[in-house]
């Protein structure tokens, strides 16, 4: 219990330090852009293909149930709402926690082991601001964008699956999918992933930056990053869903 409280306290202070440094000059635009490219562009194939596959699977599952009630016309809407409200944000965040979180943890830990962080400090450069802050900012910026791709690919997957069975046209699928869907079903759940991004960036950077166990610690930092980030993303999701319901009562399905 003491260890958990210690971890929560340390990560909270680490996160506050990130926020404070994010607004301090110089802003590392070059590093932020480089991280956005690395995290965003390189995560795109994983997120897109997962969205596509999930879209297909979801349609297959919902179809068998909705057929029993004669409600197959609802398949596109169910698909759309499920992806916008929960599947897109949560699955994209978990995928990014796996791919990017492990990467950040391992890379920063490796920089620590190979004395590159010390070298940055010795060159009078603030290593925290140079290494950690851009990665966290990039996670915050990239995750909502990846969710949009995930949602879009999920709908494409759903359409392909539905089209293969019922020969539903694109126009009709889109019309049915977006019927009754409001902005509050899309915008708040997508934007909440910025918080997930902050958690992933901060926690994985924390593990990498504070690692002091030599080369073995690099693997540990990566593993701990993935496990902790995934768990915290799910916990944060529970809280944020409640907050969204409070702020946007119309977003409840």
């Amino acid at each position: 219990m003491k260890k958990i409280l210690q971890f929560v306290g340390d990560v909270t202070l680490f996160g506050i330090r990130v926020i404070v440094n994010a607004f301090r000059r110089p802003i590392e635009f070059g590093e932020i852009w480089s991280q956005v490219e690395d995290m965003g562009v390189r995560s795109l194939p994983l997120v897109s293909s997962s969205g596509l596959a999930l879209g297909v699977v979801m349609t297959l599952h919902t179809r068998s149930t909705l057929v029993a009630f004669g409600a197959t016309a609802l398949i596109p809407r169910v698909q759309c709402l499920s992806f916008f409200v929960e599947i897109g944000p949560l699955v994209a965040a978990l995928l990014v926690a796996g791919r990017v979180g492990a990467g950040i943890g391992a890379v920063i830990a490796n920089l620590r082991v190979t004395e590159q962080i010390d070298a940055i400090e010795v060159l009078s450069v603030d290593s925290f601001k140079f290494l950690v802050v851009p990665r966290v900012i990039a996670c915050v910026l990239v995750l909502p964008l990846l969710v949009v791709f995930m949602d879009a690919c999920g709908l494409v997957g759903g359409f392909l699956s539905e089209n293969a069975v019922s020969h539903l046209s694109v126009q009709l699928f889109i019309e049915r999918a977006f019927k009754g869907v409001e902005l509050s079903n899309f915008v708040p759940p997508t934007l909440k992933t910025a918080v997930f991004g902050f958690i992933i960036g901060t926690v994985s950077s924390y593990y990498g930056y504070t690692m002091n166990e030599g080369t073995q610690g690099v693997g540990k930092a990566a593993t701990k990053s993935v496990v902790t980030c995934s768990l915290l993303v799910i916990l944060a999701d529970v809280i944020l869903v409640k907050v969204i319901f409070l702020l946007f009562p119309g977003s409840a399905i």
Partner: peptide
């Protein structure tokens, strides 16, 4: 400390170049 370090060069055992 950063300002003071500007006057000091440090060659690490491993060179510690940014890879």
């Amino acid at each position: 400390l950063s300002r003071a370090r500007c006057k000091i060069g440090f060659l690490f055992q491993s060179a510690a170049l940014f890879d």
